[in-house]
Design a protein around this nucleic acid. Structure first.
Lengths: 196, 196
DNA sequence: GTCTATACCCAGATAGAC
DNA sequence: GTCTATCTGGGTATAGAC
């Protein structure tokens, strides 16, 4: 219990630091200081830095899955569920302005490092992609569900990147309105249109 | 001339390495090895790593400006000019798939590092933003030119991020088609619409 | 202008006492 | 399980010979 608690605390705080400062820029000393542990004691819980990264990604994966499951049960229909995804940009607006999208920034960094954990991190994107595609399929858009999912994912990524770079919250709201309009049009337009 | 040539070579190759591996992950040794210089000799040209970064950003700024100037003279009208911007995603598709957008990935990394060169790097975004806004203004969209510019910039960023993460070239082509359609619709739709 | 040698620091990682 | 002390490597940066 004590051990598990400490381990969980490490992963929790490493998760925050990796998001705020990036993976490479976060040192053991940084995490240890925030947890309140000595550096030496660290290796009792994790043999290597890569192991902490894997644990952090796994934590994010589980939380993302739980969030998507929650949306799937709370929201009454696919349009409302996709609306929850879009609304996430507003809900997390402050964090996004400060640190960008946690998924996008991590995957981009790991790709540049050619880090072996990259495929694991990309699963976070895939989780959203497949969940969104499932919603579009339920809307009768099965033949282009993945295309629509990728389109929405890309729009969200771009919004997060620019809101971060320009530290602009109003921009998020503008773009969220456009996305909701797109979602509506996509559902009422002829089935051959992909939106845009 | 010898000195200037070496300095330019350093900046040129540092530019490539920062794009491929990221700024923090690129060491002096990496650059020196690619240039064919000893580490010691490096400090004859640049006192600190930050100085190389500034020089790289300045190089990119000048090249971006020259590219935008070129588009402004080559393309006969604003729509064609904006089309050049969109087409950049296809032209640089291979690099984008491998390393992402050079502007977006640099700004995101420097933001996480809280690096003092971040405002300088953000100028690269601003260069595109203002150039695009000018094109929309010429199309009679002055009252929402900046909004449209930001929208297009965000779409491009998102496309680059996902093409990078999923290493997917077909996705770029799909999305470029949607962007061209959006550009067309934006020009024919009533002036109150912001596109989407 | 270019090199070798080296100082210096901080990171990841280990050993072993308590 | 936690600590201090320490090793090792790689990074930035400097000094000084050629």
């Amino acid at each position: 219990m004590g051990s598990l608690g400490t381990r969980n605390r490490i992963v929790e705080l490493a998760d925050q630091l990796f998001y705020e400062r990036g993976y490479e820029h976060t040192s053991f000393a940084d995490i240890a200081a925030r947890v309140g542990l000595s550096r030496g004691n660290f290796y009792h819980h994790f043999k290597a830095k890569d192991d902490i990264l894997e644990a952090v990604i796994e934590l994010r994966r589980q939380r993302t899955q739980a969030m998507l499951d929650g949306w799937a049960t709370e929201a009454p229909n696919p349009v409302a569920r996709i609306g929850r995804f879009i609304h996430m940009l507003v809900m997390n607006g402050t964090k996004i302005r400060q640190h960008g999208c946690p998924v996008g920034t991590l995957c981009t960094e790991l790709a540049k490092l050619e880090h072996p954990a990259l495929p694991h991190a990309n699963q976070l994107f895939t989780l959203f992609r497949e969940w969104l595609a499932r919603q579009f399929t339920e809307l009768g858009r099965g033949h282009q569900a993945d295309t629509l999912a990728m389109h929405l994912l890309a729009r969200s990524q771009g919004i997060a990147t620019l809101a971060h770079a320009f530290d602009d919250e109003g921009f998020i709201h503008q773009e969220v309105e456009l996305l909701l309009k797109w979602l509506h049009d996509t559902n009422t337009a002829p089935q051959t249109s992909q939106g845009g």
